[in-house]
Amino acid sequence: MDPFVVLVLCLSCLLLLSIWRQSSGRGKLPPGPTPLPVIGNILQIDIKDVSKSLTNLSKIYGPVFTLYFGLERMVVLHGYEVVKEALIDLGEEFSGRGHFPLAERANRGFGIVFSNGKRWKEIRRFSLMTLRNFGMGKRSIEDRVQEEARCLVEELRKTKASPCDPTFILGCAPCNVICSIIFQKRFDYKDQQFLNLMEKLNENIRIVSTPWIQICNNFPTIIDYFPGTHNKLLKNLAFMESDILEKVKEHQESMDINNPRDFIDCFLIKMEKEKQNQQSEFTIENLVITAADLLGAGTETTSTTLRYALLLLLKHPEVTAKVQEEIERVIGRNRSPCMQDRGHMPYTDAVVHEVQRYIDLIPTSLPHAVTCDVKFRNYLIPKGTTILTSLTSVLHDNKEFPNPEMFDPRHFLDEGGNFKKSNYFMPFSAGKRICVGEGLARMELFLFLTFILQNFNLKSLIDPKDLDTTPVVNGFASVPPFYQLCFIPV
């Protein structure tokens, strides 16, 4: 058959498939802009700032609406009420993970971030239990974070109060905490193996944040037939998995079943207990991918939040002064901060919360999916439909947070200066898919920041009023603009 005829037939089939998918069930789905064949609503979305586009569309179609990214149908949730109703009140029905062709290629359905069903539930339950087990290797997770915080302070001392970009050092600290939990080992910041790991993690975040990856996920045929950065992403992930597998083999040879040292040991012990169960989800494949998931999810998000926190503290020296006064009063100079201190430091706690609220790190979270046909607000959402959640619409709700575009710790303080919780605080998402490392991340943010401010004054290279804190939105995360500062020993 003539190649031209084959091409026309293929394009015609794709067009018909697109029209059929977009028209099927439209009477039951939430409203939304009319999609174009094949490309859907992509032309109506700013790929570099999806969150802003969703906010604009919500003003037209309401808090629940339908979009098509290519052939992929998505239902968008915008605003606290619908997000709570879906992710919390109907948590089980909305607990699936959205379709990610690239991740599915890399992870093969294993791990904790992109798995679904029984596998996801069992691996998540085990990971939560293990991360909360403060007795691994007779050292609590808090001990590990405190140790890394001391190392971080010593690295900052080496800058000798000269101007520096904190990106690298602030990236090393949370990565080392995860390494300590998974591998029972922290690395020197100049260790070549550690630097290679950091390089792969950072490069992957840069790649994932590009519009090209959005295109690959919406048109998965590209993955096999086109060159691009997605190939580098898959190569980096394969490198990390190979490295983790080597460490798993080392653990198998040296493990003491009665004295687990780290996450890998705990997983291997669980595998041993379930070795007679042919349906067990505790396999080497799941261990390797879960460890890679924890490394990827637990490094860049925390380091970016820390980097943004220091920029905001530079911009608002009056806030920094209040935090340091609270540190001096509650902790002093002669001991290290600990998590028990947080309950006695409402202002510092409010500042950490406000940093996370203000920066809105992951504006749309990772997409969910419905696990069955769901009736939601008089609409029928078919099983498997991807759910896109606007966390921006919750964290920047102007009824809950007056002047949401302003950095103001009073958003989390009552009139008496006591810490005030808010149900709208969802930087880790909400419901059954809430970030498994939430507790660890909150511990790291509090301890790293208090250790830094206990030991250093922060000095800006320019007038604080002239510092730009506008986030650089890159399609996946909101990151701070480049800046330098000086760490002046107190």
Rank of each mutant, 00 (worst) to 15 (best):
I39K: 03
R261H: 05
G343F: 14
K160E: 14
P337A: 08
T450F: 00
P409W: 02
L128N: 15
P346V: 05
V351W: 03
L131M: 09
I289H: 08
S162F: 10
E274L: 08
G109E: 06
P174G: 11
G32C: 01
N231I: 11
C435L: 03
I207Y: 02
D188V: 07
V323H: 00
S390D: 06
Y379R: 02
S53V: 03
D414A: 07
N418H: 14
L237V: 11
T386H: 11
S303Y: 05
F446L: 02
T290G: 07
A86E: 02
G384R: 06
G117D: 07
L295Q: 04
G416N: 15
G343A: 14
Q356R: 02
S478T: 15
D262K: 00
L77P: 00
E285Q: 11
E154A: 14
L294I: 08
D397C: 08
P404R: 04
V82D: 03
N258P: 06
G27L: 14
F226S: 08
A161F: 06
Q340K: 07
Q22P: 12
D397N: 07
V319R: 02
V473M: 15
G62W: 00
R119D: 05
S429I: 02
D265P: 00
V82L: 07
I141S: 06
T299K: 04
G296Q: 14
E274N: 11
N202G: 07
Y80P: 07
S209K: 12
A297S: 12
K59L: 10
D373G: 05
T470P: 09
L77N: 00
S365Y: 05
G439K: 15
N231C: 12
F267S: 02
I123S: 06
F187A: 07
G416M: 14
L128I: 14
I60K: 04
E300M: 09
D165R: 02
G416L: 15
R357I: 00
I488T: 15
S365L: 06
S393I: 02
P409H: 01
F219I: 13
S58K: 06
Q184C: 12
V330F: 08
P30W: 00
R125C: 04
E326H: 02
I223N: 07
C164W: 05
N277P: 07
K138P: 13
F94W: 02
R307L: 09
G431L: 01
R333G: 11
F425P: 02
V479N: 15
D2M: 11
Q340I: 12
S254M: 07
K432V: 08
D414Q: 07
H99I: 09
L67C: 10
P101S: 11
L268G: 00
F94I: 03
R342V: 13
G384Q: 05
K399F: 12
I381A: 00
I215Q: 05
K273F: 08
C179V: 09
Q22E: 12
N403K: 10
I462V: 11
W20Y: 08
E250G: 08
L43R: 08
V436Y: 04
E415Q: 12
D373C: 04
R97I: 02
M255H: 02
R357N: 01
K375R: 13
I331G: 01
G27I: 15
R26T: 10
L287M: 07
S12R: 03
M271V: 10
D373T: 08
E281D: 08
L395A: 03
C175N: 04
K247Q: 12
F376M: 07
I257N: 09
A321V: 13
L295V: 10
A309W: 01
K270I: 07
H99R: 13
G98A: 15
E281K: 08
E72K: 13
T159C: 10
P31Q: 05
L156I: 13
N258F: 08
I359Y: 02
G475V: 11
L388T: 06
F134R: 14
C175D: 02
L391W: 03
E325L: 11
M426S: 02
E354Q: 02
R442M: 10
E272Q: 14
G79D: 06
R26K: 14
I169D: 03
S51W: 01
S393H: 01
G40I: 00
Q214I: 11
W120D: 02
K273W: 06
I88N: 11
F419E: 02
V113M: 14
S24C: 15
P63L: 01
G439V: 09
I257H: 14
T34Q: 12
D360G: 05
S140V: 06
L43E: 04
E438W: 06
I88G: 06
R433G: 02
I45K: 03
S53D: 04
E326K: 01
N41G: 01
L461T: 14
I327S: 01
K270G: 06
R144F: 12
G135T: 15
Q484L: 07
S209L: 10
L391P: 01
C435F: 02
I205T: 14
S18W: 15
F134E: 14
Y225P: 05
R139C: 13
T167C: 11
A321S: 13
R124K: 15
T290N: 02
R26C: 07
N423P: 10
L380P: 03
F219S: 05
G416P: 06
L57M: 13
P317G: 08
F226W: 13
L449N: 01
G79P: 00
A106V: 11
I205K: 13
T66M: 05
T304Q: 14
D262Q: 01
L485A: 13
D373K: 06
L268I: 08
P30F: 03
Q340Y: 15
L467P: 04
S51C: 07
V75L: 05
R186I: 01
K160I: 09
E285C: 06
A321C: 11
N196I: 11
Y189E: 04
V330D: 02
V473T: 15
H411K: 06
Q252I: 14
E142L: 06
C486D: 04
I222S: 05
E444G: 04
K270W: 08
A103F: 15
G91W: 05
F134G: 13
D293P: 00
K158T: 15
S51M: 04
V6Y: 15
P346D: 05
I284E: 08
T302G: 06
A477S: 11
P409V: 08
V153K: 02
P35D: 03
V113E: 05
T348E: 00
P30N: 02
E199K: 15
D468I: 15
R132S: 14
V394Y: 02
C13T: 15
A309I: 06
C10A: 14
E142K: 04
I215E: 04
Y347M: 05
V330H: 10
E203Y: 08
D191E: 10
P211V: 11
M345R: 00
G135P: 14
T305I: 04
S429E: 02
I42Y: 15
P33A: 01
P367R: 06
C172L: 11
E81S: 10
E354P: 01
F194E: 02
L77D: 00
K121P: 03
G109K: 14
P464V: 11
I264K: 01
L29P: 06
K138R: 13
R73L: 04
S303Q: 09
Y424A: 08
E81T: 08
I47F: 15
P337I: 07
K121I: 09
S303N: 09
Q278I: 13
I269P: 00
H344A: 12
L16F: 10
S209V: 09
D408A: 05
I327N: 00
T371Q: 11
I257F: 12
I205R: 13
I47T: 14
E281S: 12
L197T: 05
M426F: 09
A161W: 07
D466L: 12
D165P: 02
F110A: 10
K138Q: 15
Q324D: 05
D341P: 00
I387D: 00
P163D: 07
G117N: 11
V288I: 12
M136N: 14
M406W: 12
S429G: 14
D341F: 07
S209Y: 11
S280G: 09
A369H: 08
I141D: 07
S209R: 12
M74I: 15
N423M: 13
F194M: 09
G135E: 15
I207E: 06
S429K: 01
R307I: 10
D265C: 00
